[in-house]
Design a binder for these strands. Structure first.
Length: 325
DNA sequence: AAGACGAAAGTGGTTGA
DNA sequence: TCAACAACTTTCGTCTT
């Protein structure tokens, strides 16, 4: 159900394990003084969000935490960084994996011959498993990295995603499932936790599996990890959609204002947040004389023109907004 | 001709027996 | 497990600019 809660800006730290808390990008905090920051160093967006309650500033486009008033935990966090992780992994990975594959093939031919080989074979299988999981872990991290950069995600989200994957692996949630599905789901999940949600379609576009599998993996993870993700607010989508439509910050504010009014009047209940965001942006753009067609908005947001129409009809009527051209 | 409109049938996920 | 259900999509014919 979409209950359209207004405020969902910051990551839910409670839901992540302690290890992940280590990875929220504290080492990545870029600027010292917060007030003079005008744009995101990662993606150049000007839609910065200042959350004074949590004393942090982050990018409304990509979610990069630019500054926050928290204690720096020091440089050791880097040891858990994904980049480091794969570098360290080389200790066991590429070398063993080549030797190993050879070893296995020779052994299989022997294995069918006698009992004497059984123990050896078992041992070999065990290391095979160890190496396989390690290998797939490395692959998963590289996939997270690949998709993240395609989606322009900041380091803090990438790290959170890597941590989540590690956690899922410890709990043996990966075995028997496709790595691609799980990693895609984890990315989708991490973006939502950080209040900068990507749509399922956007994740699917950079993933190698279909939408159906991603959402299945997503639901599976939510259940197994007992995570509660607050339903995305339409507001979370506004900065990114607006910048994709090349609409300025005045229109962003207007769209957000419309969304706030709508949710006060409970017009958002049971409706998809993306559709609400799309319609609000559509209306806000017209009100500011910067018309975008329903098609334009539809392409960027991934909701159909029909849905945009329906939402925009409801909103403009119920909120008494005159949308005259 | 492009954009907007809305009816009607189809889809996939959720819910409750 | 299955059927009912709501939101959303697809498709398509029509109206408006």
């Amino acid at each position: 159900m979409f209950t359209g809660k207004a405020k969902m800006v910051a990551p839910e730290r409670d839901n992540r394990g302690e290890e992940q808390d280590n990875a929220t990008g504290r080492g990545k905090v870029k600027a010292a003084e917060s007030e003079d920051i005008k744009e995101c160093p990662e993606c150049g967006s000007k839609s910065l969000v200042r959350d004074y309650g949590k004393a942090e500033i982050f990018c409304g486009d990509c979610g990069l935490v630019i500054a926050e008033n928290m204690v720096d935990l020091g440089p050791e966090w880097r040891a858990f960084d994904s980049e480091q992780m794969s570098k360290r992994a080389r200790v066991g990975a590429p070398m063993t994996y080549r030797i190993h594959d050879k070893g296995l093939s020779t052994l299989t031919t022997w294995g069918s011959q006698g009992q004497g080989q059984v123990k050896l074979k078992k041992w070999q299988q065990r290391t095979h498993i160890a190496n396989t999981t390690e290998r797939s872990f490395i692959f998963a991290l590289s996939e997270i990295e690949r998709m993240s950069s395609a989606l322009n995600l900041p380091m803090n989200i990438r790290e959170a995603a890597s941590m989540l994957y590690r956690k899922a692996m410890k709990l043996h949630l990966i075995r028997g499932r496709s790595i691609e599905g799980i990693t895609s789901a984890i990315l989708y999940l991490s973006c939502r936790q950080y209040g900068v949600p990507r749509t399922l379609e956007e994740v699917r576009d950079v993933s190698r599996v279909g939408q159906k599998e991603i959402s299945r993996a997503y639901r599976f993870l939510l259940r197994e990890l007992d995570l509660k993700v607050i339903p995305a607010s339409p507001v979370d989508f506004v900065p990114r959609f607006c910048s994709l439509l090349e609409l300025g910050s005045d229109i962003q504010s207007k769209a957000i204002e419309i969304i706030k009014k709508a949710s006060e009047r409970e017009l958002t209940n049971g409706r998809g947040p993306i559709g609400i965001a799309a319609a609000s942006i559509y209306i806000a753009a017209i009100l500011h004389g910067e018309h975008r067609t329903q098609k334009d908005v539809s392409v960027v947001t991934g909701v159909t023109e029909v849905t945009i129409r329906n939402r925009y009809k409801e909103l403009s009527e119920q909120l008494d907004i005159d949308v005259l051209l």
